[in-house]
Nucleic acid binder design. Structure first.
Length: 240
DNA sequence: TTGCGTGGGAACATTA
DNA sequence: TTAATGTTCCCACGCA
């Protein structure tokens, strides 16, 4: 949030802050241009456009539908409002690694809470996550965190949940250990390795086969967008 | 000895 | 308001 441009303001963002200020859905008058699309990471960047005048890792918000933008702003009303009241300038583009907090979905009313095992199941289905978490034996539901990148999975989980503090593997593992009481996930006597319960595995498999693999189906786009942005961000941090 | 991974108690926070 | 589900902090243990 520290390196936003100071020069220009996106009508989309202005509209978003109109929402915050007046508690009304934003009007959308401008059709966003669709040229300059960078080769996007899978199913993630359809909400973002590479900004032609900016650096290679900067994006412009594009095709967010009015109601969706309203939902997203509504999710993180506190941080957005705080920024608005502080006079923080809102650029029309921003670095990939500094996506505004208020575009990170919170889990509010009417949105089913994402469970940790669902997040892990998603991660296991995502080929881009294979360097963080992998199946050991898919049939029996045994999976393993990759030691080198296990903290990234945890950080992503923490961000996905909108936690106050950074999630660590240690804390996430504590949550995983709680699953052993219900048997949904049990620890395998092998380093960083856990196993999904057979019934849970079956259920998650059925969800994966659905066109809307995420639990919060009505917010599929927003969740998935954030999910992948965060992953890219973490990859970028890891590379530096 | 050290670092890492694991296990669990307990208090607290958030959400359906 | 309550139960469920984490989250956070802490300490202890085993292993290489």
């Amino acid at each position: 949030m520290s390196c936003w441009g100071q020069d220009s303001y996106s009508p989309l963002f202005n509209d978003a802050f109109e929402v915050i200020h007046h508690q009304q859905p934003p009007p959308f008058h401008q059709e966003p241009p669709l040229q300059y699309l960078r080769s996007p990471p899978p199913h993630s960047m359809h909400n973002l456009q590479h900004h032609p005048d900016a650096g290679s890792t900067q994006y412009q918000i594009l095709d967010i539908q009015p109601q969706r933008l309203h939902d997203m702003v509504d999710f993180n009303m506190d941080s957005a409002k705080l920024m608005y009241e502080s006079g923080v300038p809102i650029p029309n583009y921003y670095p990939e690694s500094h996506i505004p907090d208020f575009f990170i979905p919170r889990q509010g009313k009417g949105r089913k809470r994402l469970r940790l095992y669902e997040f892990l199941s998603e991660s296991l289905r995502d080929s881009e996550m294979s360097d963080c978490i992998q199946w050991v034996d898919r049939k029996s539901g045994v999976f393993q965190f990759i030691s080198k990148n296990k903290e990234k999975v945890a950080e992503m989980w923490g961000r996905r949940k909108g936690n106050r503090k950074t999630m660590t593997y240690q804390k996430m593992a504590r949550a995983l250990r709680n699953y052993s009481r219900t048997g949904e996930i049990v620890k395998v006597r092998r380093k960083l390795t856990y196993r999904f319960d057979a019934q849970l595995l079956q259920r998650l498999g059925a969800e994966a086969a659905s066109p809307y693999p995420l639990t919060d189906q009505s917010h599929y786009t927003c969740d998935h967008w954030h999910y992948n942005c965060t992953y890219n961000e973490l990859l970028q941090e890891g590379a530096t």
